[in-house]
Amino acid sequence: MTAHTTAIQTPVRHTLWDAPKKASVLVVELLAGLNPLVVNRLREMGLEPGQQLLSLGRGPFNGPLVVQIQDCVYTLERQVAQHILIQPQL
C-alpha cells in the first residue's frame, strides 16, 4: 500500500464553541444563519472580525459557553457560539 500523502487541505473550521478553556482567540467571521437582530447585538458586544476573545470554558453539563469580550464576560448558548468562526491567537 502506497501512502498517498497529497494533503488536500480542507481547512478545519474552528468555532468559538470548540475553543479550549482559557484560550485567547481571534474572531474571524460571524457565520450566516443567525437572526439579524442577534448578529447586530453580537457586533455591538464587540464580536467583530479581529476582536480578541478569552474563552473561559463551558458551563456545567456541557452548558452555555462563557467568554470574555473586551471588559465583559458573557455566556452564549451553543447555537450562537457555533456561528462564530475563530482562529487561535498566536
Binding site: V38, L76, E77
Partner: peptide, 12 residues
C-alpha cells in the same frame, strides 16, 4: 414563530 428562537445571551 420566528422570534421564538432568540438565543440565550447573558452578561455575568
Amino acid at each position: 414563530d420566528e422570534k421564538s428562537d432568540m438565543p440565550f445571551i447573558l452578561e455575568l
